[in-house]
Each structure stands twice: as structure tokens, then as C-alpha cells.
Amino acid sequence: MPYRLEVENLNVYFGESHILNDINININNNMVTSLIGPSGCGKSTFIRTINRMNDTIPTFKKDGTVLLDGKDIYDPKVDVVDLRKRVGMVFQKPNPFPKSIFDNVAYGLRIHGLNDKDIIANKVEESLKAAALWDEVKDKLEMSAMGLSGGQQQRLCIARTIAVEPEVILMDEPCSALDPISTTKIEDLIHKLKNDYTIIIVTHNMQQATRVSKYTAFFLHGEIVESGLTDKLFMDPTDKRTEDYITGRFG
């Protein structure tokens, strides 16, 4: 089976500072891949390179290639807007729009040209169900999303992302601002979503990585030290630095 995402010799710079150093990684289809590593090691920068969110930073520079389904996403002919439709993203801090719950999920559909009210309503319901939020909000869809709890807001952001039917979902520490119960709900949700989506999740929490992902990559100082099956990486790491990190000797 071909890889969904192939990254070759990727280097990323912000101005003078070299953030990512020669990254090589292949990401499998319909599976969860965790990126672990200490703060500031470049995990977030890496996933923001995959949906080209880094383009919004003026000093951003990169070389190397990132292939999505075999095609270079940094090819000048590629439209960033189309790319971001295919590669969705869930952010660290829940960031719903100051709109109603319904409008938050409908937003992506509308901007992509869907006008039919019934279809939109169906898709919103589907997405909220897929994000395991429907039962909690079905009676108050017109309420402002700002009134939801943090965990509900994050699930709303996931619903908003899957409503536009991306192929890949990037999650940037989606649980770091949430309490344990909300975290469990999001993890259950990730388990459910992995059948339909390729998910890349950045996490600080190594237990979370073992719980949700099949593959794991360990980042350190802008490099990938080790990557492979999660079980192998945690039980029997090949690199001394990986072992130090997962046994809590630093970071």
C-alpha cells in the first residue's frame, strides 16, 4: 500500500533559526501516528508544514519535499486553499468561532460552496455525531459555541474539521488544555476516526501516544531520532536518547 504522506529531507527555517533538520518520515493511510518529544523540538512546526499553515509566517523558509498521495504540496501549481481542505487541523487550544454551534460546523461547508440548507443540516448532524458531540448539543444548536465547556469546544472543532471531509487530520496537542474526562472522550473519538482518516497527533503525553497510535516518531532538537511501531518504540527503543526520554531521564 502506498504511503499517504512522504516527507523527504525536510529542513525548515524561521529567519536565521534552523527549526527542522533533515526530516524523513512516511505516514501510513488510515492510521494514527503520534509525534512525541520535549517542548520546542519542532513537532508543531512539522505538522504545520504539512498543511502549509507556516506560510502565514513571513520568515518561513523550507527545502526538501512533502508528498501527499505522491504529489508535492509545495509545488507552485498547488493551491494552498485546496490543500487545507484535504489536510484538516485541530489546534492545541480549542478555537471555535464566536458563532452558533451549528454555524461553526456549517462554516467549512459554506465556504466551499455548499448552499443547500437540508444538505448542510444533514452534514452538520453527521459530523457532530462522528465527533461524539451530537447528544450533548442537539437541543441547543443555535447557542454560541463560546458557552460550551473546553472539552465540548474541542470536539466541536473536530466536528468542524471532519465536516469538510479531509483525508488527513493533524492534531496539535488536542488534549493539553483539557481535563482527564474530556481527554478520554477525545481519545475514544480518535480511535473511532482512524478507520476513515489518516491522523497525525502531536502529544506531550507518552501514555496517550501508546493508547491512540499505531506508529510513533520521537522528535528531539528538530530531528527525528527514531520512528516506527509504537509498541516497538516504547518497549525496545534502538536509540539511547529515545530510551532516556521515555524512561523520563530528561524532557
Binding site: N51, R84, K85, N95, F97, Y107, G108, I111, T161, V164
Partner: peptide, 18 residues
């Protein structure tokens, strides 16, 4: 307006004008 709104919208594939 918090920058997060901007990011969230762009990440959904919206153009800057949208």
C-alpha cells in the same frame, strides 16, 4: 480578534477573504 479564529478558518481551507 484572536489570531486563533484566523488560523482555524484558514486550516479549513477558507481563502483569506472568506
Amino acid at each position: 480578534v484572536p489570531y486563533e479564529y484566523n488560523e482555524a478558518s484558514l486550516a479549513l481551507g477558507a481563502t483569506q477573504w472568506q
